[in-house]
Amino acid sequence: MTWQEELQKLDLELASGRISADDYRQRRDEVLAGSTSAPPQPQQQAPFAAPFRWQAMPPQQQAPNPDATQVVSTGQAAPNPDATQVVNTQKAGDSERTQFVRPVSGPEPQQGGWQSGPSAPPPWVGGDGGFGPMGGSTPGWIAQGPETFDDAGKSSGKGRIFAIVGVVLVLALIGGGIWWFTTQSGGGGNGGETTAQTTTQTTSTKPKPKDDLDIVALPGSQEDQSGIKTFEDIVAQKLLTEEENAVYATGGATKARVAVSKLPNGDVIQVITVQLTDATAATTAREALAALQTKFNMKTYTGGTIPEDVSAHQIDVEGDKKGSARAHYVHKSTLVRLQVAGKDQAAISKDFDSVLAAQLEFLPSGS
């Protein structure tokens, strides 16, 4: 076996990982030491034109290095495209200089920055980044020696591990997203039925009284009674009889408020609130006014249900004479008077019950 074949065998063993880099160097030096007298082997001319290769720098631009290794890419076909052929290119007095010839197979690269000949270097040339100058005669990314095989194997193994971990993470995220959306949108233990839970917050839209004299909003067409603010204004407007005015005055009437509304059916609603001295005075006035209603030929109200602390009376409709329903009750120190008048007894009772219930809810009876 020639020394070239022995070197080629060493290259194959190193590439396959059967020997280490240190063993490779030691055995290579032994083969080269025993081949100093062997004549150089003539190279066969490649049947095809030489493919692209990076041009080596002129020898005069680099300092001579007896230990340098020159790597030249040729187009010669070899039995093994991955094999590295070593030929002796030593000169007299240079026993350590060797030349590595790497077979190159496959078509020449086309577009994308690859050009043959001493044209402009590719765009990524400009900084070695730790790999050596790509435009040099021995590019660092080629002439790294046998350590290159070890580093490449380690890098590729790490790359595969990172790729597997990344795929596992992506699958875990996708599975978690599917679980989240399915559990949130339904799909529980009810046979796949979707259960929606809705929290409803109830907000009361009913108006609240501004004070103890406030009157609930009446239905129908409102009349402007904003000018009445005291009991003296009620007396001036002659809204009550003389006897009724005397009862209010005895109770110490001060502030007052009036609301009047006409309904589409012709019924007229009137609500009067008057502030008296206190709850006792208001209760006494309510009882006195109830006695006056009987004196006015009004009878006890027979329409809807009336609370015990509310006195209610009525006058029935007779011919063209209007009928009415009237109530008095006490809210704290306020005496409330409510009346509905009209020409239809059923309509009067219906409207009276409705307005009285609303006013009682707005200003409840009691002290």
Rank of each mutant, 00 (worst) to 15 (best):
D224Y: 11
S311N: 13
T195W: 05
K255L: 13
G227N: 06
A288T: 02
A143M: 04
T254E: 10
V274K: 03
P58E: 06
K332V: 02
F100A: 15
P58S: 12
M1G: 09
S105D: 10
W3E: 08
P364N: 07
D23A: 01
S156D: 12
Q99Y: 00
D11R: 06
I19T: 10
L12W: 06
A341N: 09
T280P: 00
G126Q: 03
T183C: 05
S35E: 05
S35G: 15
A282V: 07
A341G: 01
G177W: 12
I348A: 12
Y329E: 11
D94A: 13
T98M: 15
T283S: 14
T203P: 07
P66M: 14
E287G: 09
P207S: 14
G17Q: 05
G191E: 04
I306Y: 10
P118N: 05
P42Y: 06
Q8N: 13
I306Q: 00
T280C: 12
E108L: 15
P146N: 00
G188I: 02
D211L: 09
L213V: 10
Q222C: 15
D128V: 02
Q339T: 12
K154V: 10
G135F: 01
G159V: 04
D316I: 01
G166E: 00
L276G: 00
F149E: 10
L32G: 06
A68P: 08
K238N: 03
P209G: 03
Q115A: 07
V235N: 02
G189T: 07
A282T: 05
G186E: 09
A357G: 14
L263D: 00
S354D: 05
Y329P: 04
S156A: 11
A83R: 06
A120E: 04
V167K: 09
K262D: 15
K210F: 10
L363D: 03
N190H: 12
K322D: 04
P123V: 12
Q60F: 09
D212Y: 07
